[in-house]
Amino acid sequence: MFTLAPELQNDCIELADWPLCKVLLMNDSQYPWFILVPRKEGLKEIIDLSDEEQITLTQESAKLACMLKTVFSPDKLNIAALGNMVAQLHIHHIARFKDDAAWPKPVWGVNPAQPYTEAQIAKIKAAMAM
């Protein structure tokens, strides 16, 4: 049975369930930072998915990346599966801008998170049609 890692539950806002992945928004308004989590128990690596699931993950990642590019017009999209702090397989999708709080460094640990307001969350959901 799938359960979301406690760290992701605490740090993220659940936006949607796609065919394979749960779509999350990191609750830090400094960056448009989304996370895909395949809803399968015990996954740590992409290779732990079946071949078909790997294809679905790639398709859902591309869908999210296209949405971020369209909605936010970033200078760069950062997409990564790290898992050093949270072992559960999850894929970060971060829209980066040359004037964001961490540019050009990674976003992790640069500044304390600035939570979204309910209005900001509603605007993101509407813009991304989730």
Rank of each mutant, 00 (worst) to 15 (best):
Ile47Tyr: 00
Val86Pro: 02
Phe34His: 08
Val110Asp: 12
Tyr31Gly: 00
Ala126His: 08
Pro74His: 13
Glu52Ser: 10
Pro112Cys: 04
Gln59Leu: 14
Thr56Asp: 03
Leu57Phe: 07
Ala80Thr: 14
Pro32Tyr: 08
Asn84Thr: 09
Met85Pro: 10
Glu14Asp: 06
Met128Pro: 03
Leu24Ala: 03
Leu36Lys: 06
Tyr116Cys: 00
Glu118Val: 02
Leu15Cys: 01
Gln59Glu: 13
Met130Thr: 04
Pro19Asp: 13
His93Gly: 03
Asp99Ala: 13
Lys44Asp: 10
Lys22Thr: 12
Cys21Lys: 07
Cys21Gly: 08
Leu89Phe: 05
Lys63Val: 00
Ile79His: 06
Lys63Ile: 00
Leu4Ser: 06
Ala87Met: 14
Pro6His: 11
Glu118Asn: 09
Arg39Thr: 04
Leu25Met: 11
Ser50Val: 01
Pro112Ser: 11
Thr56Gln: 10
Pro115Val: 02
Asp28Trp: 04
Val37Ile: 14
Lys125His: 01
Pro32Val: 11
Glu53Asn: 09
Tyr116Gln: 05
Ala101Leu: 12
Leu89Arg: 03
Ile94Gln: 00
Trp33Asn: 07
Asn111Cys: 12
Phe2Met: 14
Asn10Ala: 15
Leu89Lys: 03
Leu8Gly: 04
Arg96Ala: 00
Ala127His: 09
Thr70Ile: 05
Ala101Gly: 10
